Every structure is written in C-alpha cells, then in structure tokens.
Simulated assay, not measured.
Amino acid sequence: MARPPRFDTDQLLDAAVRLAASGGPAGVTMSAVAQAVGAPSGSMYHRFPGRTALLAEVWLRTVERFQEGYLAVLTGEADPHRAARAASRYVVAWCRENPDEATLLLYGAADFDRAHWSEEHSRRSDTGNNQVLAALLRLGEALGARDEQARDRVALALVDLPLTVVRRHLRAGTALPPHAEDLTEQCTTALLA
C-alpha cells in the first residue's frame, strides 16, 4: 500500500502565496516553496512540472477563489444598486480576510508568467475572467449603462475603486481601517447615482 503524501498541493500553494506576498512572484521558486514547507524538491516536481506551472496554479487558485465569491455577490441580488454596493464591499472584505492573496492580486497574471502557461491554465484564466466581465456587463445594463463611458463608470465603481481603497494598505503591510467597506460603498453609490 502506497504511503500518503506528506505534503499536499494546497500546503505547497499556501507557501507559494506567502512567498509571493512577501517577495513578489520572483520569490516563488520550486526550491523556495519546498524549503518553506520542509518538503523534498521531488514533492514539488511530483505536483508541478516546472516553475511556470507552479506560478500558474498560485495565480489561478487565488483568482478563482476571489472570483467565486465576487460572482455570487454580483449576481445574488435582484436590485442592481444593492448588488453593486455589495460587490464593492466584497472586494474590500475579501482583501481584509485574505491579505496575502490580496497582495498577490496586486500583481497581474503576466507577472506570474502568463505568456508561458499551458493551454489548460490559459483556458481556466480566460473562462474566469470572461464570467466576471459578463456579470459586470449584465449588472451595468441593469444599472442603465448603455454606452462606453457608463460601462467604464461601472468598472471604476466595482473594480478599480475598491482595489484603490485597499492597495495603499496592502503595499504598506498595514491593516485596512474599519471604515474601508463603508467608504467604498459610499463612493460606489455616488459614482452610480
């Protein structure tokens, strides 16, 4: 009977997230992750064929976890204004609860070697991004956003603004203030009035 693995994929990816949050994507190497969890390097290559696959999985797991909740909030309210306010609050709350992952998301897929990802990794990324964009467009239409400027305002209110509220604190390594969600919701409400 085969012995169960001592280190599972989530443990390795958790370590990779911490390394990316503290040192950027460049800090995520096969040997650094193995060392961080005390695993032999063979454990890394058993799960990831190389560093590019590791980087893709770190990025995708983080983004997919965020997108799952964000999509639920975007589509979970019948009232589009309530959905918009909830979505802007969600971004801040998720970042508060997941500071390492949120710091990682301040980079972009390109920083995690997107140009060299496998077809499967690229497909996963595109699928998630397209789902979020489609939900934002539907919500924008429900809010009356019919032209490019109005759609840009929705994106500003639901994506750019909440990230701006958290970015300064994440980069400085400081806690988000208790009023961050309220401030974000007030700004979103004003932009979409």
Score class of each variant (00 low, 15 high):
10 D>V: 15
159 V>L: 11
90 Y>M: 04
40 P>H: 15
104 L>F: 07
99 P>C: 07
25 P>F: 11
163 L>A: 11
48 F>M: 13
35 Q>T: 14
111 D>M: 09
164 T>C: 13
100 D>R: 11
191 L>Q: 08
114 R>V: 09
169 H>T: 01
20 A>Y: 03
146 R>T: 04
192 L>C: 14
55 L>I: 10
78 A>R: 09
58 V>E: 00
67 Q>F: 09
15 A>I: 15
94 W>R: 00
179 H>C: 01
136 L>S: 03
38 G>D: 14
112 F>V: 10
133 L>Q: 15
161 L>H: 10
155 A>S: 12
98 N>C: 14
175 A>M: 02
55 L>D: 03
97 E>Q: 13
10 D>E: 14
105 L>K: 07
17 V>H: 01
90 Y>F: 13
9 T>N: 09
109 A>V: 11
54 L>D: 13
172 A>M: 08
43 S>D: 15
77 E>H: 08
126 D>S: 11
10 D>C: 12
156 L>E: 10
190 A>R: 15
7 F>L: 14
130 N>Y: 06
80 P>D: 12
110 A>T: 09
103 T>A: 11
179 H>G: 00
160 D>N: 10
60 L>M: 03
10 D>M: 07
163 L>W: 12
191 L>A: 13
120 E>H: 02
83 A>H: 01
82 R>P: 05
166 V>S: 05
40 P>M: 14
102 A>Q: 08
137 L>D: 14
48 F>L: 14
57 E>C: 08
72 A>D: 12
4 P>I: 07
159 V>T: 02
173 G>P: 12
191 L>R: 08
130 N>E: 15
111 D>R: 04
170 L>S: 05
69 G>C: 10
41 S>H: 14
80 P>G: 06
23 G>T: 14
106 L>I: 13
172 A>K: 03
90 Y>R: 06
73 V>M: 07
132 V>K: 04
163 L>N: 14
67 Q>E: 13
31 S>C: 01
13 L>V: 15
108 G>M: 03
17 V>Q: 07
14 D>N: 15
21 A>P: 13
63 V>I: 12
23 G>P: 14
109 A>K: 04
11 Q>M: 15
141 E>D: 08
122 S>D: 11
57 E>N: 10
87 A>E: 01
5 P>F: 03
114 R>I: 05
73 V>S: 03
52 T>R: 06
36 A>I: 03
143 L>K: 03
183 L>K: 01
167 R>F: 06
159 V>S: 08
79 D>M: 10
18 R>E: 10
60 L>V: 04
160 D>F: 05
33 V>L: 08
180 A>E: 02
125 S>F: 10
84 A>M: 10
103 T>D: 02
172 A>S: 10
68 E>K: 08
110 A>K: 08
190 A>M: 15
76 G>Q: 06
119 E>T: 12
143 L>V: 11
178 P>D: 06
171 R>M: 13
142 A>H: 00
138 R>Y: 00
59 W>Q: 05
50 G>E: 13
81 H>P: 06
160 D>M: 05
42 G>H: 15
9 T>A: 15
137 L>E: 12
43 S>W: 12
53 A>I: 08
34 A>L: 12
145 A>Y: 00
64 E>K: 03
57 E>Q: 14
193 A>D: 14
29 T>F: 04
88 S>Y: 06
15 A>H: 07
101 E>W: 01
10 D>F: 09
33 V>H: 02
178 P>Y: 00
15 A>N: 13
177 P>H: 01
59 W>L: 10
124 R>G: 04
64 E>G: 02
63 V>K: 03
